[in-house]
Simulated assay, not measured.
Amino acid sequence: MDYFSGNRLDSAVGDDGMPILRSSAIHRAEYNSGSRTLSIWFVESGGPYDYYGVPDAVYHGLINARSAGTYFNDNIRDRYRSNR
C-alpha cells in the first residue's frame, strides 16, 4: 500500500505525515494509491470524507492547486463516489 503526501510549497505535513493544506476550505488530505481513495478533512465539517476511484493525478492536482477548495469543487466533488 502506497501513501502519498503533498509537496505544495505552502503546505505543511502533520505528525502523521499527512499534508495539512493552507486552505480556508480543506484542512488536510490523504491518498491511498492502492485503493485509489482520497480522504479529505474539511475546515468546517471535519472528516475524513472518503472519495473512491480517484486517480493519482487528481490527488496531486489538489495538493498543488492554488486554491484547494476551488480545485475540489471543480474536479472532485460530485465526480467520485464518496461516504459524504
Rank of each mutant, 00 (worst) to 15 (best):
D2A: 14
Y3C: 06
Y3F: 15
S5W: 08
G6N: 01
L9P: 13
D10W: 11
D10P: 06
D10H: 13
V13N: 05
G14T: 10
D16L: 11
G17L: 06
G17S: 06
M18N: 15
P19C: 06
I20F: 10
I20M: 09
L21H: 05
R22H: 11
S23H: 03
S23G: 05
S24L: 11
A25S: 15
I26Q: 05
I26P: 11
A29H: 02
A29E: 01
Y31E: 01
Y31P: 01
N32R: 10
G34Q: 13
S35D: 04
S35L: 08
T37Q: 07
S39P: 05
I40S: 02
I40D: 00
I40P: 00
W41Q: 04
F42G: 07
V43T: 07
V43L: 09
S45A: 14
P48E: 03
Y49V: 15
D50N: 15
Y51R: 00
Y51C: 02
G53V: 05
G53S: 03
P55A: 02
D56N: 12
Y59C: 02
Y59S: 01
H60R: 12
H60W: 06
G61I: 00
I63C: 15
N64W: 02
A65W: 02
R66C: 05
S67Q: 06
Y71D: 05
F72C: 05
N73V: 07
N73E: 12
R84E: 10
